[in-house]
Design a binder for these strands. Structure first.
Ligand SMILES: [Mn+2]
Ligand SMILES: [Mn+2]
Ligand SMILES: [Zn+2]
Ligand SMILES: [Zn+2]
Lengths: 144, 144
DNA sequence: TCGGCGCCTGCAACTATGTTGCATAAGGGG
DNA sequence: CCCCTTATGCAACATAGTTGCAGGCGCCGA
């Protein structure tokens, strides 16, 4: 888990009961260096106890609605989950290897985005910006 | 369809037969101002003729592999398809309304991305950058 | 202490989207 | 016209996510 996050407190601040299932999901997601799929999370959580697949989906939906987790669509059919941007978790871009499909979190601050041109002409309201990079990961590069 | 694109020529340059199915898929995608799902494309193409659902998927896969179309994952379960960046189709960011789910293409050039910080530390090779915006569309804003 | 109520969980069935296997059809080069 | 390749259709299948409903468990008020 992320050493600076108190998951119980995060849940309670959002008005959610700190159930064992929710705590374990948060520990798994917060403790992994890259975003995970629902299946990954289900598998991992079930190494130490038991939590139904559907319950995992419902926990993920809820935590995303409360902006505790962030849902990413990075190509492929599965959605990935990571900690939502917050004090301890600055927003950052993600990278996906076109060859092996691996997804990585990139360091925050490494990408600067200027929305000026869009804000001047777009009639809606922009709330979030997601940057997704694609290419070849170090691993695939070296064995290419 | 896009008035500046000769789909037959695009297919032949990629070494693909210009079959009626492929031409119709390209006309539908190229003629729509926002990216479309496979189901959208299937439905539209079948208003004027007949093309199997599976054939539509295979055509889309092929055209994406040949970089004639671009596949977008913008949240939700379905992938969307638009013309790939090319001479007549400059790359541009996409917007998705968090309320109604509508997806829009934004004007090219409105967003500038500076990857300097990432390129200095990332060991892989970055080939594509995708910017995805989320918020409320003009429609949902006005009725909110 | 009891009963009711809300929230969380499990389980089965279901939906939506995409994929595979295999047979048939189309079409271009001899 | 024949042969070969490639495209298409159709049925079955696979994967990821969703829904309905019932049981459990804690909490609160009577
Ligand atoms: Mn991340
Ligand atoms: Mn577009
Ligand atoms: Zn890779
Ligand atoms: Zn909207």
């Amino acid at each position: 888990m992320c050493s600076r996050c108190n998951y119980r407190e995060i849940l309670e601040r959002a008005g959610l009961e700190a159930t064992p299932g929710r705590l374990r999901v948060l520990e798994v997601v917060g403790g992994h260096p890259a975003p995970l799929s629902a299946a990954d999370i289900h598998r991992t959580v079930n190494r130490t106890g038991r939590l139904d697949r559907v319950t995992v989906y419902r926990i993920l939906d809820r935590l995303v609605r409360e902006k505790i987790l962030q849902e990413l669509s990075l190509g492929g059919r599965r959605r990935l989950y990571g900690m939502a941007p917050s004090e301890h978790h600055p927003p950052h871009p993600h990278f996906r290897c076109a060859r092996c499909g691996a997804v990585q979190c990139l360091p925050p601050g490494g990408v600067r985005v200027d929305l000026g041109g869009v804000r001047r002409v777009f009639a809606g309201e922009i709330r979030e910006v997601e940057v997704r990079l694609e290419g070849l990961c170090a691993n695939c590069l070296s064995r290419a």
